[in-house]
Write a protein that binds this DNA or RNA. Structure first.
Lengths: 244, 244
DNA sequence: CGGGGGTTTGACGAACGTCAATCGGGGTGG
DNA sequence: CCACCCCGATTGACGTTCGTCAAACCCCCG
């Protein structure tokens, strides 16, 4: 496990630093600067809208804890979730800033977010090329996840979709130190999974039951336990995203 | 019909200029510059790969005529099309440049493409802010279309999906003067439509048959004739994308 | 006048959705 | 500490949408 020994007091910005470090080799100065960002994160309850699709893009933010998502409601109430936002993810920073407007962004759990304007501004400074690269690579990764989402929903079965999504989330959470090879948190209701995967709640439940029966994975009390990642990889055709 | 009277000789870059003009108010100098870009467009046959997802992003390009798409093959041969690329669209220019790597880009018809490096370079020049805006807005639109695609595939029926996609394409083609309220070109086989909409070819055929029977639209010899756009809008929940 | 790729159709089956009831577990108030 | 409660998970029965297979058809082109 790639667990970095942090100072005595756990830093709230740890997920952000982990993620950006994984995307580009940050200089100690930037890391120091990011660490000190820990200025009064705001907390919001589940269901809180960080951004409405009808309104202008919201201010830049960093998600420090909890989960959120981008989503859209059809006029008859059907919902489609486009992407999940997990700790360490940036919202509206860098090239992604203007692109990602025009979707709802909603908290799925209690969340804490940091004002991202400091990060946003630091990105533009010429003395931090690595930070710019990291943010740029983050945008690329987001794109890959979006394309993955389309392929899942368009061309994979419910069983394959579920495996693929869970492996993708495991990959993302491993980056920020929240998951390992055998387990990860998943604070989502089956409703939410259904709206992300283009399925009904009932069918999500049945799909998970099958994974349980086959002893490939298990979801219990907000945690996924992976019993056979390799088998999941095979059935889902998942491959870890590559940059460059 | 918003048909601009062009000079005696039709300009090959007309679709590009129309599209960018619709995205930002270009100065006459830029338009003049873009018009003169008409340097030996390259032509490619259907099936030609402009970019392989396994390789680095290809050089910047502008599609002048014909259709292409971004797509991905699963390891067992299933194909998902992410987005269509139509005349006037830019490939790998501006903020979209680094984002859109990692997908196959394939010609669906005979196409002609322009080297886009001149445009790409002009975008960065400070004396052309409108051009930068236009390219930026183009990226935003592409994002909206990507989100539309996810919603279609994830939460709409085959019937709704088809109507929604066709209206979206009509919207895009109207921008470049290739479509009007009652018809547009659609040089796609039902196979391709199926891979874009996450359906089987047979079901695409049946869906189109239903539209024909209901006298909402008709596809014949590469052209869509719209008989009742308003009805299509209602069933598909399509709304023209808004920037800002 | 044949091909040949794309379209159309029918018969059948599988995957997934809907409806409705039941279960379970974690939080809350007494 | 315990009973209650409520939201989410689970299950069964049934219906619909959509996929698959295979054949026939059509149109364009050589």
């Amino acid at each position: 496990v790639n667990r970095v020994a942090v100072a005595a007091k756990p830093q709230a910005t740890d997920p952000l630093i982990r993620r950006l470090s994984a995307l580009a080799s940050l200089s100690p100065e930037i890391i120091e600067r990011l660490t000190r960002l820990e200025a009064r994160p705001q907390t919001h309850p589940p269901g809180f809208y960080l951004q409405h699709e009808a309104e202008a893009a919201c201010a830049a933010r960093v998600l420090l804890s909890g989960w959120a998502c981008r989503q859209h409601y059809l006029s008859d109430g059907r919902r489609q979730i486009f992407a999940f936002i997990v700790p360490g993810d940036t919202i509206g920073i860098g090239a992604a800033a203007r692109r990602t407007a025009r979707t709802d962004i909603v908290a799925l759990t209690p969340i804490s977010v940091l004002d991202g304007r400091d990060v946003e501004q630091a990105v533009t400074l010429p003395q931090h090329p690595a930070l710019r690269d990291a943010i740029e690579n983050a945008a690329r990764l987001d794109d890959i996840f979006l394309f993955n989402q389309i392929t899942r929903i368009g061309r994979q079965t419910a069983y394959e979709r579920m495996a693929h999504l869970l492996l993708e989330l495991q990959f993302r959470l491993k980056t920020v130190g929240l998951a390992d090879e055998t387990s990860m948190p998943l604070p989502l209701t089956q409703d939410v999974l259904a709206d992300a995967l283009g399925l009904s709640t009932v069918h999500v439940n049945r799909t998970l039951k099958q994974f349980r029966r086959e002893e490939l994975l298990e979801i219990k009390s907000g945690k996924v336990r992976f019993f056979d990642v390799e088998a999941l990889r095979l059935v889902s055709d998942f491959q870890p995203p590559k940059l460059g």
